[in-house]
Design a protein around this nucleic acid. Structure first.
Lengths: 345, 345
DNA sequence: GCGCATCGTCGAAGCGCTTCTATTAAATAC
DNA sequence: GTATTTAATAGAAGCGCTTCGACGATGCGC
């Protein structure tokens, strides 16, 4: 493997000159530059990333922090990862995967102290997230996909849960639904203050309140039987429910089973909206689900770009980006045909 | 950030002695070791990964090569990635994601020449894969999740497609099905010689031949409408088909639509088996799909472990590991109730 | 009790870069 | 025309580690 010294010798310049030519750190005459690049070409030279990182104190490596949650990672999360990797590559960075457990902050701290990565992107952020606290205290560069409770001074990109839930509720209301239920992630996720679980539920409460509708909510493990149970429990609280919004993809089959056992069909008797849900999952069921589709790839990409921006410009002001989900109407929603008891119609 | 020199000074030993203590490269007296570790503790010392890598010529960084296929990555692939990251971490390695396009081999070559990674794990391998050829020619350490046509001397872990397909066919045959169709990945994937597409189809041909059954096959894009079409086309070739095996997850909703439009219900009139398909997807549809479930996490893990073994032992013999899929019977399969025309019964 | 291996440690030479300071030649100022 | 920049390059000092060769101090055989 040729080194910079080899290039310098062949091009008949000093080693430092080669470095300047490569990095553009100092002006180099056109003629010299040509000679240097020709020599690099001839030798098939590639700068050594480790040496470069050691000398410059910038490895151009980023880490993506993704804990494996109880609920399991889905297509949405996969898209964060691939988009993040792409964005990193486009900016000449490498992306390392750190599958950090939420509890093992010491492990994370050690990793950040090894000088391997210039900064980290945190995924699956909780409202009070030890990882975030640690990074902040250590003054280690990072950005978030998601956000915590106290996000002052931290760059993040997150889903605008208020918009998402409100748009879903409004859409169903326009279809005539007035008894709309919400099936959240699990109680455990809620207790752990997983951002989406807390924010979406709060947003739902606000949205139905503003719309003058009842707040019908269940938390539910990520499994069909749990969805079935949650649906039954909702119906026993209010049998006139005609529509349901959920963020809990894996509960959906159970919910649909409950609906069909009632003798109802989708969308004629019951409407279903999956929020923050990928087309992949939505198209697996019949009828295909109307969704509020998250900009997953964009989030992964922006998460990385925010971090790089902070790394490269001394620029201290923080970017807080909330992205909307897009309503994609498929076959699981339709006009309300069962007006609530006591209503006229 | 404290350096090794700081530790050495505090422990009153030479810098090299600290290094030996940390790496166990040379014997160190128990007393000295204690003093050194105490000093490290006191200073909160963490070795610098870049410096260590530069000096030792081993970065302890691996790269996972995952091209984004036309068909889109699924849960199975996500599990490769997370399991690979976990396995790497357990062995004190870091895992970088390289979302390499299959064509850009030069890009890959450059990456391998930067000295950043010690080896790579290739995913989504094709029978004649340029990436593999390049790695082999460059004598760069690697392992495969999947395998190419000529795998001599290369470590890999792959699914045993013969076992998978044969077990699925046998299972259906035992249920009395004698007209079994196979829906493969797309023609494009087949033409690109994507390993699973080629191997599963060949395995199906062999299995039905041995069983004395007709070879009913369609290639099909990864989308419900394509699945619908493929199903229709299969039925017009042989209307007495009563069971179908597919590896094409995303075509399934279309296939199921076709079945229900025929007035058939699953599993009473028609059986469906999804091979190399995750529980996640299988449980999204109703009835839940009987699957041949891939050992995704194990594959990701073993892919990494094979590479590490090769890296750390000079050991030259290669490991070729074929893993079976596990038959998980859910609601989409049952006894054959529509015997083929011309058959007695 | 002398030679010889072994143990534990040290000092120094890199690993392949970046970057600081120095140097020379040409350009500009007045 | 001399002083002063500026442009272009060179040389050298690190970055924080691993590893080689050396060396004194033990332990052992016979």
């Amino acid at each position: 493997m040729p080194t910079m010294a080899d290039v310098a010798k062949l091009a008949n310049v000093a080693l430092s000159t080669v470095s300047y030519a490569i990095n553009g750190t100092r002006p180099i005459s056109e003629e010299t530059r040509q000679r240097i690049f020709a020599a690099m070409e001839e030798l098939g030279y590639q700068p050594n990333a480790l040496a470069r990182g050691l000398a410059s104190k910038r490895s151009r490596i980023l880490a993506l922090l993704f804990p494996a949650p109880e609920r399991g990672l889905g297509i949405t999360e996969l898209e964060f990862v691939t988009a993040a990797a792409d964005a990193a590559k486009e900016n000449d960075y490498n992306l390392i995967l750190w599958s950090s457990e939420l509890k093992k902050i010491d492990e994370l701290r050690e990793l950040t102290q090894q000088g391997l990565v210039d900064g980290v992107v945190a995924m699956e952020v909780h409202l009070h997230d030890k990882r975030i606290e640690m990074l902040r205290e250590a003054d280690f560069p990072f950005s978030m996909i998601g956000r915590c409770a106290e996000s002052d001074g931290i760059d993040y990109v997150d889903i605008d849960f208020d918009q998402v839930v409100r748009e879903a509720v409004d859409y169903l209301k326009e279809l005539g639904h007035t008894r709309i239920a919400f099936v959240n992630h699990s109680q455990a996720e809620y207790d752990a203050e997983y951002g989406p679980a807390v924010r979406a539920e709060a947003a739902f409460a606000a949205a139905v309140k503003d719309a003058g509708l009842p707040n019908l909510v269940r938390r539910c493990r990520a499994a069909p039987p749990a969805g079935y149970e949650a649906f039954g429990s909702l119906l026993s609280e209010d049998p006139s429910i005609t529509a349901l919004i959920t963020m809990n993809e894996r509960a959906i089959p159970g919910i649909m089973l409950g609906i069909s056992e009632k003798g109802w069909s989708i969308p004629d008797d019951f409407s279903l909206v999956a929020i923050v849900s990928s087309a992949r999952a939505a198209e697996m069921v019949m009828p295909a689900l109307t969704t509020m589709e998250p900009p997953s790839a964009k989030m992964g990409r922006v998460g990385v770009e925010l971090l790089i921006r902070k790394l490269e410009s001394g620029d201290q002001d923080t970017a807080k980006i909330l992205l909307p989900c897009r309503l994609v109407i498929r076959g699981s929603t339709g006009p309300c045909r069962r007006p609530p008891e006591g209503a006229h119609g």
